[in-house]
Amino acid sequence: MLTSAQKKRQIVQPYDGPYCPRCNWKLTADWIRTGTVRCPDCNRDFEATAFKPPERKVRIAQVATVGPDGANVCANHARNAATTSCTRCGLFICALCDLNVGTGSICPSCFDRARTEGSLPTATKTRDYYAQAKMAAIVGLFFGFFLLGPLFGTLALIYQAKGRKQIRAHGDDPWDAGSITVLVIAIILLGGGAIYDVLIILSMMGKLH
């Protein structure tokens, strides 16, 4: 008897190669080719460019060939000369142990540990502050009439500042049209909302005629 988690795991299939872009039918090697391809399952055409990605060969220098002078030994392979060191623990590692996932060289044990902890940068989920700023601005527009404009305006400004920092850290331009729009709405909510709230309070107190 399968548990619900196991059933879910069965439904979510891992990615295992190219599919038909129209019907998601698994394409076998015969159908991976350049030109117009007709899917054998849905019988519809799509344009395709096929590649044969080469396996990257790694030169594993051995201590015996490099020579003992100036050659550090890999911590995992006594015969191999180290080519780099792990950016996390500092161990000397050879080309075989070098697991570089775009964030520097990591040794296999650190890779496993970081993946389990969820601290591996590529496997980490981050909070999308920019989306939160957008949501705060939109909600603020609706609730501005209920004296909540300044609150949502402030929230939008805070999230927008964090979002900008995040976008800049990714190497993108933080000042696109959407970002500027959110900033303008946040300022209107904050300034306009404050004036609106003061006027409402004054009129409720009978000081505004």
């Binding site: 190669g17 190219p18 872009p21 129209r22 394409l27 991976i32 391809v37 519809r44 055409d45 799509f46 344009e47 395709a48 460019t49 096929a50 590649f51 990605p53 080469p54 990257r56």
Partner: peptide, 9 residues
């Protein structure tokens, strides 16, 4: 370096 297929439809 890993790309196997690029499609357009």
């Amino acid at each position: 370096e890993d790309i196997v297929l690029v499609t357009y439809h």
